[in-house]
Structures are given as C-alpha cells and as structure tokens.
C-alpha cells in the first residue's frame, strides 16, 4: 500500500485514459472532445515516464518520447482550435451533432 511502484502509476494512467475515452464519447462540443484527447495523451505520457523510471535501462528514451508527445499534442490543439473556430464561423456552433450536412 505504501510502497509506490510501477503498477500504481499505471493504474492512474489507465483510469485517465478511460476517462478520456468517456469524455470523447459523451461530449458534443468539439473542444470537449479535444479535452478528452488531451486526457488520453496525458495517460500515455504517465505510462512512458513511469516505464522510463522503473525499467532500469539507464536511458531516458521514455522521457524523450513523452517530450515528443507533448509537442504533438500542442501542435494538434493549435490546429484543432483553428478548425473549430472556422467551423463556428460557418455554423455558429461547435456542437459536432450540428455538422450533419454531410451524411449518407
């Protein structure tokens, strides 16, 4: 219980991942979905850093990969917010359910 090990971190990461999936499923707002994506990415990052800490390989590969993940998330968020604003300009909402012109 008081010996914190890899599994503890993994459990937190897993729960964060699942909650991110839940947010992606239930939210209608495009930016809400993005928030879910950020949660999933954070879960992945906790995994990477925790593995790097506990696998005893003596390198920091996991940390560098998580650095890349953070940068990717930033790039994605920048573009996503721009696209959401464009959507809003055209449809006056960011509710993804209103985007129903394209169907079939």
């Amino acid at each position: 219980m008081f010996e914190i090990g890899l599994t503890h971190y993994l459990v937190v990461a897993t729960l964060l991942f699942v909650m991110g999936i839940f947010v992606m499923i239930t939210k209608r707002n495009a930016i809400g979905i993005l928030i879910g994506v950020e949660m999933v990415l954070n879960g992945a990052n906790i995994n990477l850093v925790a593995f790097n800490r506990y696998n005893g390989m003596g390198n920091i590969d996991g940390q560098i990969v998580s650095l890349f993940v953070i940068v990717l998330a930033a790039a994605e968020a920048a573009l996503a917010v721009a696209i959401c604003m464009n959507f809003y300009k055209n449809l006056n909402t960011v509710d993804v359910d209103h985007g129903d012109t394209l169907a079939g």
């Binding site: 994506v37 999933v40 992945a44 696209i83 959401c84 985007g99 012109t101």
Partner: peptide, 20 residues
C-alpha cells in the same frame, strides 16, 4: 468546415489511442 472538423476529430482521437 464540417469536413475538416470531422476529419480532425477522428484523426486526433485515433492518434491519441495510437500513442497510448
């Protein structure tokens, strides 16, 4: 606008899952 939003949402979700 709608197409790019849908594409972006599916893309970022799949990228997040892939990273996990």
């Amino acid at each position: 606008a709608e197409a790019s939003l849908k594409y972006m949402i599916f893309g970022s979700v799949s990228a997040a899952v892939m990273l996990y």
